[in-house]
């Protein structure tokens, strides 16, 4: 038999060499290293995260700009209401502030303090006391409530101020309270409230 013929006849046997099983493990390791390098994958994800973060920043900025515009417009409308000639409009403004504003705004608080001292409508003043009580640690508000109590003559507003200062446990309110209690012209219901507040504050 010719050599070439022999090889041709037994070709399958000549070609039967097989990779050892342990080579599979090594190959899988190599595959991971070459085709799925973990570092590159991280970079790949980081790219997406960076792009997503950029979008988030842009969107957040847009919302922020939009919100600040909205809040600026809201504030202007609120101040317009608080300055309105109509008591109903002013009341609406005070309620709006009470319902929607969580942060102190000096301009609005100044306007509310002016209302507290000078508004001719008792309902507006009473609503203003409630609105100002949202910021109990504001010293300016506390002092103005005390001053307002000293000057106030309308019984319903007096009662509201007395209750507010009682809630605030404001020691400096003792003097105006004593004055109210000792004033013969004070309505009895106001006196009663002032006395109760005095007891509350002294506790």
């Amino acid at each position: 038999m010719k050599l070439e013929e022999f090889i041709q006849k037994n070709k399958a046997s000549f070609r039967e060499e097989k990779m050892p099983n342990k080579a599979t493990v090594a190959f899988e390791k190599l595959l991971k290293e070459k085709l799925h390098p973990p570092k590159k994958q991280t970079v790949y994800y980081l790219k997406y995260i960076a792009v997503a973060a950029c979008f988030a920043v842009i969107i957040a900025s847009l919302f922020w700009v939009q919100n600040s515009e909205v809040s600026h417009n809201d504030k202007t409308a609120l101040l317009a209401n608080l300055n309105a000639d109509s008591a109903g409009k002013r009341l609406e403004g005070v309620y709006k502030f009470n319902d929607e504003y969580e942060k102190e705004d000096e301009k609005i608080i100044n306007r509310l303090l002016t209302i507290l001292h000078k508004d001719e409508n008792a309902n507006v003043k009473i609503a203003t006391v409630d609105a100002l009580l949202k910021f109990p640690s504001n010293e300016k508000i506390r002092k103005n409530l005390i001053t307002a109590l000293e000057n106030e003559t309308t019984p319903l507003v007096q009662i509201k101020l007395i209750k507010a200062l009682s809630i605030l446990r404001e020691n400096r309110a003792r003097k105006p309270l004593e004055k109210i209690i000792n004033n013969e012209q004070t309505y009895p219901i106001v006196k009663n409230n002032a006395t109760l507040a005095m007891v509350e504050i002294n506790q």
Binding site: M1, K2, L3, E4, F6, I7, N10, S13, F14
Partner: peptide, 13 residues
């Protein structure tokens, strides 16, 4: 180039 047909593949390899 004739070889004996009984020769083993392993030996040729």
């Amino acid at each position: 180039d004739d070889i004996v047909p009984t020769i083993s593949v392993e030996f040729v390899k």
